[in-house]
Amino acid sequence: MKKIKILTGLGVMAVAGFFMVAADHIDAPAVQGGNSDITDYYAFQGEDTNNLVFVANVQGLLSPSNTSQASFDENVMVEFNIDNTGDNVEDLVIQAIPRDGKMYFFGPVAPSQTGLNSVVETSTMNGGVVDITAYGSIAIVSEVGGMKFFAGPRDDPFFMDFARYSEIIGGMAASFNDPGSDTFAGTNVMSIVVEVPKSMIGGSGTINTWVESKRK
């Protein structure tokens, strides 16, 4: 589970470049290498400053030459959680579920159940569907009710110099090089992206947001 905080409302308007990220590549043995392995979670203000963008990346270190691995597991749901009351319990969820080459989104909607277990919120009027973009294809983006959706392989945007990090931890170096060497260069992730009007999120000041992968 990834959890970050992001400012909304006037707070975000004042810091248009505000950006938070959590990263975790292939170090959870129970989910390593699969679609339930969340590598990164990003939440930031959209190019349209009235919107927030949520990005969950799964299945890290994919080789662009091995396209057979680049697919979403239909038994895994990715759930974006939003707490807009400050009690660290999700008030809204956005659920993403793949089926037959498409990614279906449900929410934002108040969840029927909070915590580790979820109910698929198929009755909500919010959400949409997008064709999953294939390798080498132009990104397919759909828009419904002011929301935008994308799902498919992308170049891994996270930068980390693990070799230098190991040298620092081992006492053989004092600091990172600038710019250093990107361990993830040339590898891909499977991305799920949803852009949501702030008016659909509610709250003011600060919201908590985190993402979970849940297996059927």
Rank of each mutant, 00 (worst) to 15 (best):
R164V: 08
N57W: 05
I201Y: 12
G60H: 00
Y135N: 03
V196N: 04
A134F: 05
D131I: 06
G101W: 06
G33I: 13
V193H: 02
A16R: 06
S204C: 00
F158V: 15
G115C: 11
V189G: 03
F159L: 11
F159T: 03
S142E: 14
F72P: 10
S118D: 10
S213T: 15
L92N: 02
M147P: 01
S137W: 04
D27A: 02
L92P: 06
P153L: 00
P29K: 15
L52V: 12
S112K: 07
G186L: 00
K214M: 13
G136M: 06
G171S: 01
D40L: 04
D155E: 14
I207E: 10
D73L: 09
A70I: 01
G127E: 03
D83P: 06
V55W: 07
V130H: 03
E212S: 14
D87R: 04
A185L: 04
E212V: 15
Q59W: 07
N81F: 13
G34M: 05
N75C: 00
V76A: 06
D48Y: 12
V55M: 03
G136F: 07
V58Q: 03
K3C: 11
G33V: 12
F18L: 15
E79L: 06
P108A: 13
K102D: 03
E121K: 12
Q45P: 03
E195F: 08
N177C: 00
P98K: 00
T209S: 15
W210L: 08
F162T: 10
L10W: 13
D27L: 11
Q59C: 09
K3Y: 13
S65R: 10
S137L: 02
M200Y: 03
F158P: 02
S68V: 14
D27T: 12
A22P: 05
M77V: 14
S213W: 14
F158Q: 01
G128Q: 03
G34N: 02
G34I: 09
M20E: 13
V196Y: 13
Q113C: 02
N208Q: 13
G203L: 09
S175K: 07
N117K: 10
G107V: 11
H25V: 08
G33K: 11
N188C: 04
N81A: 12
D156M: 04
G203S: 03
T133M: 12
M200W: 07
K148R: 15
D100K: 15
V12R: 08
E90M: 05
G146F: 12
V130Q: 04
G127A: 05
F105S: 04
V109T: 09
Q113P: 00
S71T: 10
V55I: 14
L52M: 13
R215Y: 05
I38S: 01
N50A: 12
N208E: 05
S63P: 00
V109N: 02
D40N: 09
R154D: 11
A185Q: 00
D155M: 10
M13I: 01
M160E: 14
A163F: 03
K5S: 01
Q95W: 06
